[in-house]
Simulated assay, not measured.
Amino acid sequence: MPTYRYFVQPQIDAKTNTIVSYELLMKQLTSQGWRLPESFTSIDPQIIADLLVETTKVLSLKVRRCSVNINREQLMTTPIAEAIIKSQKQLYPTKLIVELTEEDGPQKYSIEDLLPRLKSFVKKGMQLSLDDVGTGNNYFHEIQELLPLASEIKFALQNFNKEFKDPKIQQKIHFWHAISIEYGLRLVLEGIEDHSDNKLSNELGIKLKQGYYFSRPQLLNLPQDSIAV
């Protein structure tokens, strides 16, 4: 049976230079080392559910917020939805953030399909983050209905072929920065790779950041891992 673990990457508040959140990134152990699974949707939902519950138990009380990547297919899968609810209970008072990704699954779900489940999560104290805004299926008109429910949007520099200094990229960031202010959301800029990226993001008024400049994702061992897997 394949071995999966979550890696954690911190989210940094640039003004206080402190870690304010961890993002959980699932990886699979292969003969070449840890790699992203080819398809998250093809992983047995119960495996994801059990791993999420075990991982959040280890992380409880370590940080104010903790986000987990969930695609639409996983969101609508009962074992995973139940594990998300259980994880929030374990993490309390830390907030669990459901980071909705745009990875496609075999079944297509509309925003209308997702809303009841997302609303129930928010009612139970969780938060919603919209990942990869401005790319793929996450342009403004496609996610506009979700914005009033969200607490956070994430813009990933690594999704673009252009460099950060390209005016078109900065224009996109200005747009989403304005959207975040209009809807009262946190804006997280992902893909900060070096000092110049960090400096430019400061000039653009970005407060919350993620990227290799601060930390690469680190393996989170579980109690049953007698040695590092």
Rank of each mutant, 00 (worst) to 15 (best):
K162A: 06
V188R: 10
V122I: 14
E112N: 08
K172P: 05
R186F: 06
Q90W: 03
F160H: 08
T135I: 04
S129A: 15
L91G: 06
G134P: 10
V98P: 09
D194V: 08
L96K: 00
E99T: 08
F175Y: 10
L96R: 02
K172L: 00
N138I: 13
K154H: 14
R117V: 14
G125R: 06
D131E: 00
L96S: 02
H174E: 11
Q88E: 03
L130W: 14
K168V: 13
I173H: 07
P106Q: 15
G191W: 00
N161G: 07
I169A: 01
I97R: 02
K119G: 12
G184F: 00
V133N: 04
R186S: 12
L149F: 03
N137C: 12
L115V: 15
P148N: 11
L200G: 05
L128T: 06
L187D: 05
P93Y: 09
L187N: 10
K162F: 04
I111P: 10
I153C: 01
L149K: 05
E103K: 15
L185T: 12
Q144I: 15
A178T: 05
D104R: 13
G184N: 13
E182H: 13
V133H: 07
S129I: 00
P93Q: 06
D197P: 10
F121K: 13
V133A: 10
R186T: 13
Q127F: 11
L157E: 05
H177S: 10
K154C: 00
L187F: 09
I111M: 01
L96A: 05
W176C: 10
L130M: 13
G184P: 09
G184E: 06
L96P: 08
P93T: 02
E99Q: 01
R186Q: 03
G105I: 09
K123T: 07
N198S: 01
I173D: 08
K124N: 01
H174S: 02
L185W: 02
I143S: 05
N138L: 12
F155P: 13
G105W: 11
L115I: 15
E193D: 07
A150V: 07
S120M: 12
G134C: 07
K154E: 05
L147E: 04
E99I: 11
S180D: 11
H141L: 10
Y139Q: 14
K123F: 12
L146I: 12
K154R: 03
Q170F: 06
K162S: 11
E145K: 15
Q127L: 14
E193G: 09
I143M: 03
E142W: 09
L147H: 12
E163Q: 14
F175S: 08
P167F: 08
Y183G: 02
Y109M: 02
L128G: 03
Y183M: 11
V188F: 11
Y109W: 13
P167R: 01
K95G: 06
V122P: 08
S110H: 12
S180W: 10
L149G: 01
K108Y: 15
T94L: 02
S120Q: 07
L187C: 01
V98R: 00
I173W: 09
I179E: 02
K124A: 14
